Simulated scan of single mutants.
Amino acid sequence: MTKEQEPLTSSELATLWVVYEKKTMMVRIIDFFLVHNQDPEARKIFQSFIKGESKFVKELSQIFKQEGAAVPVGFTENDVNHSAPKLYDDIFEVMYLRTMMKIASGIHALHISMSYRKDIMNLYQKFTKYAEAFCEETTQYLLDKGVLPKSPYINLPKHVEFAKTKDYRSGLKLTGHRRPLNAVEVAYLYQTVEANIAGMKLMTGFAQVAKAKDIRQYFFRGKELSKQITKTFSNILMESDINAPATSAGRVTNSTMSPFSDKLMMYNTSLLNSFALGSNAIGTTFSLRKDLPLKMMGTAKDILDFASDGGDLMIEHGLMEEPPQMEDRTQLSKGQNG
């Protein structure tokens, strides 16, 4: 038996399932954006993305079939309404794709480490390269349009310093003021604020168009949570005289007709929750000022509560597709005994 003929491990099956769900969702969303977007450069990016992403979906579907596994439902034409008006302006649609490609880059890199078969590892390497290419392309597009604030510049150090007292960890100086943020701390805080500004606008649109009342309320809660996180971390940046990222670009329209199913929007929100929790964990690890991990852990709890309630809501509405299940050995044994 060659390595490619070996059966999929549970982790390989799990990651392929997760990626299939995500990629079918992205095809539906970007296809809707392409129909309505008026900017030639953005349309070119979307056309290229859909071509590659659709090819990947077919490739994943073929793997499931070859392995004798059921192909997930994922997201289909039933999850998009092409006759609905635009929900976001042209600029935000590119901002959205950039955010999702940042998430995809991280997910695929993680999935490589969870794979054993060479063909599956090669697949994730290809996915990672693809996501990174579109992250770069969308970033350059937004920079060229002058709508993507860069993280702040810093005077480059001329020599290396070592922390001499525990005050560096506490962040407090003898004067009672906190020490300025270091470059690593600024980087993670800045990215958190940037991500939540985009998330706030996404949730605003979802809240306007969701069909079920409790799901609309959930998205409104998500918008308020993003605003709260943005305010908390922006204030920390401002304490060190650092301007928080801000842009007037990326607008939500007045449409109340949903282009997407509640299922698709809830799943998209779940993905963003997972990304936010992962980013908070990394930020906590690399923040050396003790007050920062405490704030990040408080934020993580709020996100976890929000994510948990979202999972319950998806189940209540029958919107959650179950991942492949491990065998219930206890139940099998009972059946055999019977």
Rank of each mutant, 00 (worst) to 15 (best):
E4C: 10
L8A: 02
A14S: 09
V18W: 06
Y20N: 03
Y20G: 03
V27E: 02
F33R: 05
F33L: 03
N37S: 12
Q38S: 13
K44R: 09
F56M: 10
K58C: 05
E67W: 04
G68W: 02
P72Q: 08
G74A: 06
K86A: 14
Y88M: 07
M95S: 02
Y96K: 04
K102D: 11
I103L: 13
A104F: 05
A104I: 01
S115I: 01
I120W: 01
F127E: 08
T128G: 06
T128M: 07
A131W: 00
E136Y: 08
E137N: 07
T139L: 07
T139I: 05
G146P: 00
S151H: 03
I154T: 11
P157V: 00
F162G: 07
A163I: 13
D167F: 12
R169D: 14
L172C: 07
G176E: 05
P180L: 06
A187V: 10
T192L: 11
E194Y: 12
K201Y: 15
K201W: 14
F206Q: 04
K211M: 12
A212Y: 14
R221P: 06
E224G: 06
S226F: 11
Q228P: 09
T230A: 02
F233A: 04
L237E: 01
E239F: 11
I242Y: 02
T247S: 12
A249H: 06
N254G: 09
K263P: 00
S270A: 14
L271F: 06
N273S: 13
L277N: 01
I282C: 06
T284A: 13
T284P: 05
R289E: 03
D291H: 08
A300C: 03
G311K: 08
D312V: 14
L313W: 11
I315K: 13
E316C: 08
E316T: 14
L319N: 06
Q325T: 03
D328P: 12
Q331C: 13
Q331E: 15
K334W: 13
N337F: 11
